[in-house]
Amino acid sequence: MNTTIIFTIATLAILGLLLAIVLYIVAQKFKVEEDPRIDTVESLLPGANCGGCGKAGCRAFAESAVKEGLGSLRCPVGGNPVMQKIAEALGQTVEAKDPQVAVVRCSGSCDKRKKTTIYDGLATCATIASLYGGDTDCKFGCLGRGDCEAACKFDAIKINPKTGLPEVDEEKCTACGACVKACPKQIIELRNKGPKGRRVYVACRNQDKGAVARKACLAACIGCGKCVKTCPFEAITLENNLAYIDYTKCRMCRKCVVECPTGAIHEVNFPPRPAVVKPAAAPAAPAAAKPVAEPQEKKVEIPVEKKN
């Protein structure tokens, strides 16, 4: 009995020793010489492997940063602090960049945009987009099947079943751009987060003429140009019947939000507007009364989400 136990222990010990030697020799022989700084940079990165930088993953980012220099390479997830550390480790400099966030440029919720066909195929936006304009008459709008949600590695964008539109959780969003690439309708845009997270943007992509756009969706930008005229900073441009606010020029005066007859311009994270402003908006157009209330609702919605 004893001999059996001793024999077993001895065998295993010798086996272990032999294998260790083999492993050591193999490790020595096939050793790959690598710049140790690659490991340093990789350890500084968030390790999400999201591909937001345009590289295959964090390791690829590190390799590229060490071999070719930082250049325009940015880690959107880590943001400025991480980039600063990496730049220090490599002895390079890097410019600070404003933090960004994904913004959904469509307000065609289920109640504002009627379904005109029944889509009966695979429920991904890409499939619908390859087939036709979508199950509403707006062929620019959100298709609502959540390709963005599936692409997001940070659980930051979710389709709200009530509105049928995606909503971005600003706390979680790293601006990696995965959803921007996934969206076949180019609804999602990365915009600067803005001071205190405040942003004003046109939540519509409809390039149809006003009447057509309006017929398809109550919240569509009809290209009326009122916002362009109102803007004191020339931040708004109108192209193909669609207004666009340049976030580098916008000074957040919010005049356009009030002026927009369909409520296509959204403001987020602003404190509640003084009640005096509201009646001024009402006479703009009789139909405008309802849509103007929309941004206000949104304002309430987002802080609530954050607390969660």
Binding site: I118, T127, L131
Partner: peptide, 8 residues
Amino acid sequence: NTLIVSPS
């Protein structure tokens, strides 16, 4: 009827 649309 509201048309049903799907890929083949």
